[in-house]
Design a protein around this nucleic acid. Structure first.
Lengths: 117, 117
DNA sequence: TCGACTTGCCTAGACATTCTAGATATGAGG
DNA sequence: CCTCATATCTAGAATGTCTAGGCAAGTCGA
């Protein structure tokens, strides 16, 4: 029944397109497995960003298929088997490109939102 | 054959979820028709944001159906018939909610992107 | 007056991504 | 033994955007 914590009614929406960037970013810090990615992003963002597993795993396959992530089965700190993801060389480039694009987008949207007339 | 300008290969991607907010914002400035919304957003954002008509009109129906926009047929400055959209009361609330959510999202993503470890 | 271009609205169908709602397996602790 | 936390995975629905057009009417130059 996989109940999760789920205490607060999660209002945390994620924008399409940002998920890949966030995953690449946390995987760039150090190799990390899927379950931990969710927690890490939630922790860093102070609970503002919550990723569903049903979004995460498809995204991980996507990123691996595109050659931006590589994976390796290891044993987690909790002693369970886990698939650790890390960035490839092109993944690092991709992360750079995506963050640059994100900043451009933020700037552009800020322009519109700040228009007083 | 509706050719548009289309000179530069448009790289301008828009994130899902931001389109509604942008439309509400420019419609909040003054009543405006669809064709002009595209140009206005492009102009304000200095060409960084380009909205396709195939995205725009479905979005306009969506926003009107949800009661955030109301529309009225008028004659445009160019002397053609055009459907002018303006915000409803709840549309104004919605715009406030969406901009607030957008800012929260930006802050949260910034936190993740700035994590050095 | 013909043709091309611009303004303006609209739509069908493809596509990508996220969400819902599960299933499964294993180790730890009561 | 039972439950909880860890951990991966999937099918199918829902959503939203893009592609790729179509239609109509006014403007302007040749």
């Amino acid at each position: 029944m996989s109940r999760q914590v789920d205490g607060a009614a999660s209002n945390a929406e994620l924008l399409q397109g940002t998920l890949d960037m966030l995953i690449l970013k946390v995987a760039a810090l150090r190799p990390i497995h899927g379950y931990a990615i969710v927690q890490r992003i939630q922790q860093i963002s102070k609970d503002a960003l919550q990723i569903r597993q049903g979004s995460l795993y498809p995204a991980l396959y996507r990123l691996e298929n595109r050659g931006w992530l590589k994976s390796e089965w290891k044993t987690s700190e909790e002693g369970r088997r886990a698939k650790y993801y890390s960035l490839t060389k092109t993944g690092r480039q991709q992360l750079g490109a995506e963050t640059a694009g994100w900043k451009r987008l933020c700037d552009a949207i800020a322009l519109v939102l700040e228009t007083g007339d």
